[in-house]
């Protein structure tokens, strides 16, 4: 009797525990997901694709991304589910290796751009005066020059192929001006806020205000800009690769597009060659776009008014 009672109590407590957990943790997430579907759909798309890529790494022989590792121009078959290209690459291996490689370029470039941009923005907006003037003119000039063209010039003059990591860093170095500009304007608004004023009056140092007061409030905004920068960097990298300035031995999505254009796969009717990289790029961009607009909604509540 006592035993069954206690087990019943435990049961009730257990249910209550789950119920409480459900109400405190799960329900708000569910509610937020319903209100902000683009963030959820975008993340699911992106991580779903990454999951498939990871699975591919485990079950497929990825060394077949090299030319001449398979018969050429095969349509999708059992031995090569994604077919092979004119130079005898297994296109499934190319897809498995290329997708994370392209994302990696984007992440490196986006990280460099947002890092530099944030530092420049804080220096400009917090210290104002000469620093602001100098940074602002660099940014204005930088915005007037298309980064892709500068990258083309630099790449031509270096005269050798860049590794994908170097490509990412180069793209990051030429694309920090836009985030610098937008984050600067956010910081400018923020430094006039009452809580920053109060912190300054209580004698907090400049660095203290930047890291303790402003940064926490800017994180959502910076995250949203990071996603935008990553998408922009991937766009730039694929662009560079598509006009023939990528690393010819790397199987990135952009290089696959390059080989497609080079061997005019579309007019050869080799749809299995261009469709997978194209689909992967579309998924990457659409998911990053959805995540970025979801984050926008999070960081900029004015957009929350449903229209």
């Amino acid at each position: 009797m006592t035993e069954s009672l206690s087990s019943l109590q435990a049961d009730v407590a257990g249910q209550g525990g789950w119920k409480q957990f459900n109400e405190e943790r799960v329900t708000p997430i569910k509610k937020y997901a319903l209100r902000n579907p683009s963030l959820i759909v975008g993340s699911v798309l992106l991580f779903g694709m990454l999951f498939l890529v990871g699975l591919g790494h485990l079950v497929w022989e990825t060394e077949m991304f090299r030319p001449l590792s398979a018969p050429t121009r095969l349509g999708p078959t059992g031995a090569h589910p994604f077919g092979t290209d004119t130079q005898g690459r297994d296109l499934l291996a190319v897809a498995i290796l290329g997708t994370p490689l392209t994302l990696r370029i984007g992440l490196i470039a986006g990280g460099v751009a947002i890092g530099l941009g944030t530092v420049a923005a804080f220096l400009a907006a917090y210290y104002r005066g000469v620093v602001d003037g100098a940074i602002r003119s660099v940014v204005d000039v930088g915005l007037a020059m298309p980064a892709l063209l500068i990258l083309i010039l630099v790449r031509i003059n270096i005269g050798r192929e860049l590794s994908t990591d170097e490509l990412g860093i180069a793209i990051g170095l030429t694309s920090w001006v836009f985030p610098a500009r937008t984050i600067r304007s956010q910081v400018l608004v923020m430094r006039e806020q009452a809580y920053v004023e109060l912190s300054r009056l209580s004698g907090t140092s400049g660095m203290g205000i930047i890291f303790k007061e402003m940064m926490p409030n800017l994180i959502p905004y910076i995250t949203a800009s990071l996603v935008g920068s990553v998408a922009g960097a991937i766009l730039a990298s694929i662009g560079l690769e598509a006009i023939g300035l990528g690393n010819l031995s790397d199987p990135t999505l952009g290089m696959t597009i390059y080989w497609n254009i080079q061997f005019s796969s579309i007019t050869l009717g080799m749809w299995w060659w261009w469709l997978p990289p194209l689909a992967a790029i579309v998924i990457v961009f659409v998911s990053l776009f959805l995540i970025s607009s979801g984050l926008d909604e999070w960081s900029n509540p004015r957009l929350r008014k449903r229209v």
């Binding site: 766009l235 694929i238 598509a242 597009i257 497609n260 579309i266 261009w274 790029i281 659409v286 776009f289």
Partner: peptide, 16 residues
């Protein structure tokens, strides 16, 4: 959502 897709990829789809 189309605006998230690079123009040259749309170009390839249109060509096909």
């Amino acid at each position: 959502t189309l605006s998230a897709i690079p123009q040259y990829l749309l170009a390839m789809i249109l060509i096909f």
